[in-house]
Structure formats: C-alpha cells, structure tokens
C-alpha cells in the first residue's frame, strides 16, 4: 500500500497530545495504524511531551494522596478492562482492528449509490463518525463544509482536485475546500469519515436535492 495523502502536522500533533474530538481521533488513529511516517511523527510529539513532563515544575500533591492510592492498590485486580462486546454483524468483513471494536448504528441509504452507517461514539462532541460506501464511478455533489471533514479511505478510491485517494490515504477538508469527489470506476469506495458542521451543496441540483440528502 502506498499512502500519498497525510493529515496536516497540526492535526497529528493534536492527536498525539489528546486534543481531538473522539470522532476525529478515530479517523486519525485508523490512518496512523497504516502509516509509519505519521506514526513516527506522532511518536516524536509524544517524546516531546515526555520531555516537557520531566521539566515541568512540580505542584505538591495533597498530603494524603499517596496513602489514598496505596489503599486502592489492594482492591485492584489485574485485567480490569471489560471488553466491548463486538457487534453481531460487522458492516464489512475486513475493517481495521480499531473499527472492529466499535459499535455501529443502523445502515441507511442517503442518495443513489451512497449509503452510510454511523459509528456510535459515547462522547463525541462536535463531530460524528460514519462509514460511507459509494458506488463505482459515483460523482458526489460539488460541496464545501461549514465545519471539518476528515476522511480515511479503507477500500477503493476517489479523486478530486487534490489528487487520487486510495486505501490508507487521508483527506482533510474544511471551509476553504470546495470540491466534487469522483469515485474510482473499478470498485465501490469505503471510507471512514468524521464530520463536524454541515455540508453545503452547490449548483442548482445541489440546492434542489439538498433537503433529501441526509449526511
């Protein structure tokens, strides 16, 4: 797999320091799992964070803090994590490991050749995450964003002005981007998307069907 499109550095830094909303974090995590260069970059940010922690001026803990922790040690059993039960049916057979452990909402058709399935994230604040399938050759409507749109391609490909996006590629769109992606002709395209705000559809057709497209 050759990955040609990566998240902006600022997004990776925010990812590494835990500042992204849950849906955005998930999309970056899926990209990073496949991209050694971005993994190293995020790793470098973590190293810097460690160095910063070492150099931070300490602030005294409460007098009984250590005793309070020790009191809890005795109650602790190893392996306390309750695994999330996987869904009965995964929406796709070979999703990345991180996604296989997610919970999914109900799949629905949003437009001809286009269906989506929400990912249930307990505490996403501003953005929503979903899987998006598009039919081969599908031409999306010209659109821009009132918020941000983070996309990681899982299967197939799409293209727009900035190039071709295949498996592992990451696309970042915000209010400055106005584009019309076209899905590759050979196979359906499956993407993981995190979106905040709304899509703004352009052109007469966009304005006409906009009330019917529910993304």
């Amino acid at each position: 797999m050759t990955i040609n499109h990566h998240p902006p550095d600022e997004l990776l830094a925010d990812f590494a320091t835990g500042r992204l909303d849950e849906a955005d974090h998930l999309v970056v995590a899926v990209h990073i799992a496949q991209c050694p260069a971005c993994r190293r970059f995020a790793g470098a940010m973590e190293h810097l964070a460690g160095a910063t922690l070492e150099e931070t001026a300490p602030v005294a803990m409460k007098a009984d803090a250590f005793a309070a922790i020790v009191a809890k040690l005795d109650e602790l059993q190893p392996a306390p994590r309750a695994d999330v039960p996987p869904p009965d049916v995964l929406p796709d057979d070979d999703l990345p490991e991180i996604l296989r452990r997610c919970r999914f909402g109900k799949q629905r058709r949003v437009a001809p050749g286009l269906k989506l399935q929400p990912i249930i994230l307990p505490s996403a604040k501003q953005s929503r995450a979903f899987l998006l399938w598009s039919a081969p050759g599908a031409r999306m409507l010209q659109h821009s964003h009132s918020g941000t749109e983070l996309t990681c391609v899982l299967k197939g490909s799409f293209s727009h002005e900035a190039g071709r996006y295949g498996p592992g590629d990451f696309d970042f769109g915000d209010g400055d981007v106005d584009h019309q992606p076209v899905v590759g002709p050979d196979e359906p395209c499956l993407c993981l998307v995190a979106m905040s705000g709304d899509l703004e559809l352009h052109g007469l057709l966009g304005r006409l069907i906009s009330p019917f497209v529910r993304l």
Binding site: E22, A33, G43, A44, R101, L121, P122
Partner: peptide
Amino acid sequence: FIDEADDVVDSPEILMTRGEDVSRV
C-alpha cells in the same frame, strides 16, 4: 448512550512507537 468508558481508540496499534521507530524518533 453507553454509560461506560469505552477505550475505543486506545488500541495497541496506535500506542507508542516501537523498536526501530523509537531510535529514529
């Protein structure tokens, strides 16, 4: 809404860089 802290994204494949990566970093 699910009322527990799901560690959805804290999975092994995105934890710290390892081995060869670490020396490069």
